[in-house]
Design a protein around this nucleic acid. Sequence first.
DNA 1: TCGCAGTTGAGACTGAGTCTCAATCGCTTC
DNA 2: GAAGCGATTGAGACTCAGTCTCAACTGCGA
Lengths: 169, 169
Amino acid sequence: MPPHVQKEVDRFAAFLQQQGLKLTAERAALVREIFSTHYHFEADELLFKMKEKAVKISRATVYRTLELLVKTGMVRRVHLGEDHYHYEHVTGNSHHDHLVCTTCGSVIEFHDAWLEERQREICKKKHFTPTFHNLQILGVCETCKRKGEQPDAPDRVKMIQVAAMQLRK
Amino acid sequence: MPPHVQKEVDRFAAFLQQQGLKLTAERAALVREIFSTHYHFEADELLFKMKEKAVKISRATVYRTLELLVKTGMVRRVHLGEDHYHYEHVTGNSHHDHLVCTTCGSVIEFHDAWLEERQREICKKKHFTPTFHNLQILGVCETCKRKGEQPDAPDRVKMIQVAAMQLRK
DNA sequence: TCGCAGTTGAGACTGAGTCTCAATCGCTTC
DNA sequence: GAAGCGATTGAGACTCAGTCTCAACTGCGA
């Protein structure tokens, strides 16, 4: 296990203790899984990965643990243009936005201070007090564009759909 | 019926005819309802309104008609920070973004050419070909801020939830 | 050993949205 | 006005991400 993963487990344990909660084997396994491989992921995808690794964890526990991780601020719940949530690691406390490739599902992050500042100005002009914002730019990434239209190329989006379907059986 | 509503009905009829489809009584009623009152709305809210007015239209027809309206470009499907879709009128063909009040559910639209230009620059830098973008700024609107925290004030969000629940019974 | 709060998994439930299918509509042709 | 036919409809089953419930289990302190 990479050292940064252990650090995240410890961070979560500290938060749990502070709340009078416990770092159970299930919770630790989920945190390890989340922080060792996936940067952006879906709840069902995570559930499937755990099943693959023969770690028995129920759907309810996955969602419960994700909720706790969101509360600690270690994970963020985001909308990436699909009709369900995605989750992502929070590194430091830097806010960022997303370029989402609608062909392969890959996500490029970016942060632009100028964009943020302009948004604050707009809110001020409209007498609106912002608490959070959410910007996704949908389109086609460099790799997919170069590949051109290969309609049946196995992509991440499809793989997740298939995995989720098998899981429910 | 306000004259601009009839204009929208006619616009929809023209599109349908062009596609070899018909402007049925149900479709016309939905377009009239959408364009006479709601600016931003949810599918279930629309279904409830029709039921209230004793216009018998099924859930399937509502979704089918919304899909057609999206295809014509008269209506746009948007995410406003909740876990389901919202719909909005498209006036002309101006793209815009949203300030969403998390207290009362009201939506303020804005358009900022500078913001759009900056986004294009970011995409270019990341070799990403954008097709669409989606920016919501969540926060508190002027009215709600002035009212302060009135936790049990009947707001639009709650009203829609109650209506949707009654509808399913 | 007991009590008890926290935790778990299985599976029922929810709610927005989609799909299916038989019945109906409305137009054209005879 | 009857027949033919494609478009349309409503009812309700279905899907799927996410939530909730509940009985069983765990681990710790008294």
